[in-house]
Nucleic acid binder design. Structure first.
Lengths: 343, 343
DNA sequence: ATGAAAAGTTTACGCGCGTAAAGTTTTTGT
DNA sequence: ACAAAAACTTTACGCGCGTAAACTTTTCAT
């Protein structure tokens, strides 16, 4: 790389000995120019390190190479992990992922969609906040920008939805717990942050009914995304009101369970499936940390890879289809029971 | 909002009854125009919802309103939490934060800086990977783009560094542990991901020396960012080789401790400061989840707020100074001992 | 009321690149 | 070797906005 900075494509084209329109063509698609000229351009690129001005490029494109990725709460390791997978896939395929977190706030989600719209992204992967999302805004956004929904479904919104099958989670956990012990109480939030919680409650009711047991639900108070804290505080309340009826708790998700297990430990309650244990605890999601709880958490795992693969696949299909599908499709993947020590 | 879409500022200016240069001035700084014209523009804005094309805007600016935020590993809740704070601050102040994660990979960090450079950001907040960072690339980047380093310091690179004082962490933990029990073994990684680990080891050595104890260090094998896994596996190894000399373990960071506590639980070792406990465990960082370990983790906390406040303060100062400080400064904040149950 | 200062208007150019059109050179198949 | 096809060059315009210059209108203090 020689030191002299190149101002624009004109200058770079001159240095490479190729005309500017051809150089422009090269940057849009290196395969679109003859191998010999490609070689000359790349030789010049080695020497002078020039990159097209992204703002000038994007101004003239109807769509950019940007992919928006929006998650409801990035400080939740579950979303951090999914976002990581999605980002890497986009990069591999030559797109520029731009990551946003709504930080659990409705207004921020709206702002994000707003600025995303003006970014002219080729496509957007959106995991909405869910219950508190501004449905109208999201609907409008999805009409203007090619969007795949994931994690939380919003009926009829977006070109497609990809996620895990909540019934699959709950049917497996309830089946396992009842088969190997007593029917579980469902420990969930009274104000769940996203629609998956509701689907899990329904699945629980239906499974318990099918198996001939009475459903029992404990609803934890609390708002927001501090699930561990809620699981802990309300776990203490749950334990202290001594629900003699059961020795088995099924938490709606792993983060609640992390807090709940912490409460059990504090109350000196032995959790697990050994004889000396008095409580079994299971949950759903297979949170990155649930291997390291004490005891390690028996849970039902998302098929992270399948889901993220499908999200990416649908996105690329959508882009190739010009941003619109004939009809909206929903893709649900079954979950996998992960037996650990807690139940 | 009327339905007719506005193509550009020219059209919008016509609709608002104000000339385009004045409208342009308004969007750059609403305060820079007379209150009466501001009102007219904003009235038109209510009706027609128009937004300047960001690509055209940024093409003509030397610097944009973008702030780059780069962290080494976003799936680590510690960084997710810091990133969240920094992002929100930038948004409040009217900037557009753009979040990047190197996902623990050197090449990605390089790519990020590369694309960040062409984004003409007003400033960048960079927490480098550390040991595996390509120092030359980062140095060059910081010469071209106004950058504040945080979390991991790289000597002499960037306009300033803001972080926590590693000596403060270790001096407090070691002082507390020795005062209330026996001197601790340091449990750390042999290949630490970032320079803070080295500083903590040095601080440990120096503190032990000062207090007249023999330092003992256990170095865990393993690479990468799966600290909990490493803490767990190597924790088992540590426990199984029965180091009779000590009943106190100081983990270099909380994530290692989360895995280590999991190993203790599996081996049936009671951790804590009660009489019936045989091991005390403490660590550093005050990871978001360390309140919920079993037992809850005694640790030394970053002053998250002070650090993120200072990072933001330095960033805005840097921007106002035109992107360069007279001299590089380092700002280290003391940590705070957090007593919980594990030690 | 009056003149200077402040703010707005009109006109014009430039930013760096996409891309169309017409003409020229190189490649390809036969 | 030759014509057709493919690739490239030259020329030119447009994208949407920042901004400078010269001029006109509004505001404000005296």
């Amino acid at each position: 790389m020689s030191g002299n900075k190149i101002r624009n494509m004109e200058e770079f084209a001159a240095l490479s000995g190729i005309s500017r329109p051809t150089v422009s063509k090269y940057f849009n698609n290196p395969e679109s120019v003859r191998a010999s000229t490609r070689a000359r351009i790349e030789a010049a690129l080695e020497e002078h390190d020039y990159r097209p001005n992204i703002y000038a490029v994007n101004q003239n494109r109807r769509l950019t190479k940007n992919i928006g990725i929006v998650v409801p709460y990035l400080a939740d390791p579950f979303f951090a992990e999914i976002a990581r997978k999605l980002e890497l896939r986009c990069i591999e395929a030559g797109w520029s992922p731009i990551l946003f977190s709504a930080h659990g706030e409705k207004d921020l989600e709206v702002d994000i969609l707003d600025s995303l719209r003006s970014m002219k992204p080729a496509g957007v992967l959106l995991a909405p906040l869910g219950r508190i999302s501004d449905r109208g805004v999201i609907e409008k956004f999805c009409r203007d920008v090619p969007t795949i929904l994931f994690d939380s479904n919003l009926d009829g919104i977006g070109e497609a939805f990809v996620g895990s099958d909540n019934f699959s989670f709950v049917s497996q956990s309830v089946e396992y717990l009842t088969r190997t012990g007593n029917p579980p109480v469902l420990f969930e939030m009274f104000h769940p942050a996203n629609p998956n919680a509701n689907k899990r409650r329904k699945a629980y009711m239906s499974m318990m009914d099918r198996l001939g047991f009475d459903p029992q639900i404990f609803q934890a108070e609390g708002h927001g995304w501090g699930f561990e804290e809620i699981g802990y505080k309300e776990g203490l309340r749950f334990l202290d009101q001594k629900p003699a009826q059961t020795d088995t708790v099924l938490c709606s998700n792993d983060r609640l369970a992390i807090g709940f297990l912490s409460a059990c430990f504090e109350r000196g309650i032995q959790v697990g499936r050994d004889e000396n244990c008095t409580l079994r605890v299971a949950a759903h999601d297979d949170h990155p940390f649930s291997r390291f709880t004490c005891p390690s958490l028996t849970t039902v795992a998302h098929d992270y890879d399948q889901v993220s693969n499908k999200v990416i696949e649908m996105l690329f299909q959508l882009i190739e289809s010009g941003g619109h599908f004939e009809s909206r499709s929903e893709h649900l993947y079954p979950a996998k029971l992960v037996l650990r020590s807690s139940a």
